[in-house]
Design a protein around this nucleic acid. Structure first.
Lengths: 132, 132
DNA sequence: ATCGCACACGTTATAGCATAACGCAATTGA
DNA sequence: TCAATTGCGTTATGCTATAACGTGTGCGAT
């Protein structure tokens, strides 16, 4: 599932996300790409779908937004569960991984015979700078 | 922040959620309450806002739905972070708490001086029955 | 008492997020 | 060559959530 060469649209969307300093909504991405010929939401969503699949972009469920993976080049899917801390003031997102958390959640799912497909961990709050 | 007496609308919304055997979207709740005089989404969202505040209802960010707390009577806010396992086939939701996970996440936020306000943990997949 | 305030409520309108369904073009591999 | 796959563009639609305005009710302070 490592990323193949990106198509034009996928590259444009990824580029916008990578250059942004925070998560963007699909419609914000659309607006930023109108000059490049984007006209409809589906063009964005279709590109995002692939980028998510390739593991180079993450979706932040709690704010309906998307962010480029913090580990360019690596395959993020191999790092275990991805967790995010999202500053509700400045919008900055920190991405991290904690294997102990992974283990605890996996222990729970094993105990319940629950087949986990996709796990979301998102901490919303204030980053150090904004909490001051 | 324990729950005061619920207003009429809040009680109606809570009742629908409690009797449901899975999470419901705000609009599904609205449809179930049309016979009781509900006409507009805001009536549902305003009630939900209070019920979330009182800790008797949870919001599932990854599926834009709401579910009654699994601990009737208790104040769920005092149990630490709430985690959910959501079956994508039958819709059933299991709610659980893991203090070790809480600790690990709190350690991380402390290290980053991040002031956590609200943490989401949602595992989507297949429950034992549906995975068979 | 009545004024001001807080709160719940009702309504209309609108904003924001996401996908269905159709058709076309390019690529690939049997 | 033909069928299957994939990406793309467009239109339309559906789902989720909130803004803005006004009404009524209860309640404490003056």
């Amino acid at each position: 599932m490592s990323a193949p060469a990106l198509t034009k649209n996928q590259a444009l969307v990824f580029d916008v996300l990578e250059k942004a300093d925070g998560p963007l909504s699909a419609y914000t991405i659309l607006d930023k790409l109108r000059d490049h010929g984007f006209r409809a939401p589906l063009q964005v969503y279709r590109a995002l779908e692939k980028l998510l699949e390739y593991g180079v972009v993450h979706r932040l469920e709690s704010i309906n937004s998307f962010v480029a993976c913090a580990h360019p080049g690596e395959n993020c899917h191999s790092h275990g569960i991805v967790a995010f801390a999202i500053c509700e003031s400045c919008g900055q997102v920190m991405e991290f991984h904690d294997h102990e958390v992974d283990h605890r959640l996996m222990d729970w799912t094993r105990g319940k015979k629950f087949k986990a497909e996709k796990t979301t961990i998102e901490i919303r709050g204030l980053c150090e700078a904004c909490a001051a």
